[in-house]
Each structure stands twice: as C-alpha cells, then as structure tokens.
Design a protein around this nucleic acid. Structure first.
Lengths: 197, 197
DNA sequence: GTATAAACTTACCACTTGGTAAGTTGTCAA
DNA sequence: TTGACAACTTACCAAGTGGTAAGTTTATAC
C-alpha cells in the first residue's frame, strides 16, 4: 500500500465514513458523498467500482482504526492498557461518535445481511489483551466476552443517546450525567485490581 | 380510539414496524411494506398520508408497548418489578429483536434529525419505578439514569450482536454466552437488595 | 333502493438512485 | 514529441422512490 495520507482514495474513504455514519448505508448516496468532496459521483465509482465496495473499504478502515487503537494504547501492564483503552473509547465515542455510529449501524444491518463480521480482529485483540490481566486470566471466554460486551455496550449506548439526552433534559443535566457515567466506568474498571471473584 | 386489534391501521403499523426495524427508515420502502401486507402502497398513503407520518405512528406504537411493559410488569414490590422488567426486556430483545432494532435505529437517526425523543415517557416511567426501590431512593437522578442506561445499553448491545456472535463463534458458543450474560444481568440486579453504597 | 363513507386500486409523475460508456485533462518518463 | 497512465468529467439510462389525482368496490345506514 503506497498511498500516503492525503491520497485521493483515503480522502474519499474518510468522507464516505462520516456520511455513512451519519445517515447509514442506504440513506447515504454516492452523489451526496461526492458533493461533500467537491467531485462527481463517478470519481467514487472510478476508484471503488460500486457503492457496496466503497462501504466495505469504509468498514475495513474502521476495523484498522479500532485495532491500532488497541495496539498503541498507553500503559505498562495489561491492566493499565485495558483500563486506558476503555477510558479512551468512552471519551472518543462521546466526542467523535462517528465510529460508534458506524459500528452500531453495521451491527443492525448485519441482522439481515449476515456477511462475515469485519470487526472480529478487533474483538479478538481486545479479548487477548483482557486475558492477560490477572482479573481475567483464569476466567472462561464466555465470562470475559460478556464483561467486554457489557462495557462496550453501555459506552456506545450512552454515546448515541447523547443527543436525545441533551434534548430531553438540557445540556447542563447532561454534563452531570457524563461525569457520573465516567465515574461509574472508572469504578467498573477498578475491579480489574481485584482477584477473580 | 375505536380500532380493534385487527383494524387495518394497526395491522399496517405492525408490519411497517418489522420492516422499519429490519431495514431502517430509508431502506424501507412503502412498496415493500405494502407488498408484505398484500396491498398497494397507496393503501398506506391513504391511511397515513406520508411515509414520515407512518414512521411516526410506528414509533408511537413502540413507545406505548414499552410503557405498558413497565406498567404491567409482575411483582409486589418495586424491587421485584424493576428486576422483572429488566429480565423480561433481556429475553424479549433476544427473542424478538425488532423493538430493540427500532430503538437503536431511531437513536442513530436522531443524531442528525434532533426531533423530540418519543421514548421519553417510557424513560421517565422507568426512572420513577427505580426511584421507589430502596437501592435508588436516596440517589441522584444522574446516578440512577446512568445505572439504567448501563443496563439497557448492555442488554440492547448484546441483543443486536447476537447474529454476528453466532457467525463468529458458532451457535453453541453463543448459547454459553447467553447463559453467562443472563447470569451477569441477574448479578447486577441482585445489587438492588443492597443498601445504597 | 339509495346515499354515504371507508377501504382500497389503477394510472401517472417528478425526482433520485447506482451504474455504464466514452471522453478529457494533467503529469511524467523515455 | 510521444505514449501511457492516473484522475477525473459529461452524458446517459433503467429502475425505484414518495406522492397526487381520480376512480372503484364494498359494507352499512336510512
């Protein structure tokens, strides 16, 4: 792969990502993405061949991003790395919800399309990291994955509820909620210090 | 409202619900919904006027369903009712994920449309019930809502991950996961017995 | 029997969609 | 100067979209 950061292809994928995240696969149109890029939709078709192929590359890029966010997480011990990963995921999904939207939309669409799940490498890496912590070293895969899914689920759900929560209770009330949410996440992650119960 | 259960309008809303849940607002077409009902799309337009209005009624029906699932939950004490509600939500969203899909799709679309959130009555009722338990009677709204969102988030996230989890690890492995997930949910609900920490 | 209204259908329309085919422009190596 | 290639554009199309207008069928009320 010899494309540098501002290669047209990567630029296209980046913009397409944000549009797919915002509107979903079907509501996003090639013409709409192209408009945002200042080109015609045929420019997109020239590079990717079809809308479906473009979407696949968007998911591939998402997978790479998530995977590298695990591989490059700061921390000296697995415990610290795992904790940092979840904290970073939480703030990232609140500040830039695009990736979270992309994941959830892909999950919802997968209910019917049932292709192979592109985020498996990410999940496996996360599971492997968690297995290295003392809290989860002895646990079964099922227990471990349920714990992971629980955390990711509440993080992502809170992130996409952001807009409606603000709408229902106001921005100030949401700020309090966000603080509390962060505190509860830290509390859940503090359990990593404990021995397996 | 004098429409009985098999009134055409409620039949249409029910079928539209499942299609909107499966495909999302934009990918669902009036013609597609009508086909599934054995009528033409003009039958739908005759009753609802527009696709957007039909979707609104679908969300209204969803809201009513969720609200009545709280109001009619079994249990003598608020603790028991709250516990039963979450357990029932968990099994329902695994067996019939349509409503969960509908909620999450609406949340994702609300990121940009920012209309008033139709499920507020449900959330408020859930909050009111939780406030009656001894565990949460003294707590702040923020703590309470974060706890609720955490539970709902992990329940819904697990429900829509069902398909991909089966695809990645097989049906047998998922059965184990589901058991573990249910056990962890029960454990979290057991905390209701405790005093506020 | 006739009027009325509910529950539709057929016919049509303007517009948007993803996609094809064929050309244009700019850059750079030989 | 020429050839080749990447990065596009203009022109076009068949299929599908939500929506309008006008009719048709069916049951019920008087």
């Amino acid at each position: 792969m010899d494309q540098h950061a501002d290669s047209p292809k990567t630029r296209y994928i980046s913009t397409a990502s944000s549009v797919f995240a915002e509107k979903g696969y079907n509501a996003a149109s090639l013409a709409g993405i192209a408009d945002k890029l200042g080109v015609t939709k045929q420019a997109l078709l020239h590079f990717f061949g079809s809308k479906a192929a473009l979407y696949e590359e968007v998911l591939k890029a998402l997978s790479d991003r998530l995977l590298s966010s695990i591989q490059n997480v700061e921390g000296t011990s697995p415990d610290e790395q795992l904790r940092n990963f979840f904290l970073q995921l939480s703030t990232a999904s609140l500040e830039k919800p695009a990736d979270t939207q992309l994941v959830l939309r892909a999950l919802l669409d997968a209910q019917v399309s049932s292709e192979s799940w592109p985020l498996k490498p990410f999940l496996d890496a996360l599971g492997a990291l968690a297995h290295k912590t003392k809290r989860w070293s002895q646990a079964s895969d099922a227990e471990l994955f349920c714990w992971i899914y629980q955390l990711i689920g509440s993080i992502q759900h809170f992130a996409i509820s952001q807009v409606t929560l603000k709408g229902m209770y106001g921005t100030e009330a949401f700020d309090v909620l966000r603080e509390t949410h962060s505190a509860q996440l830290r509390a859940a992650l503090a359990d990593l210090e404990k021995d397996p119960s």
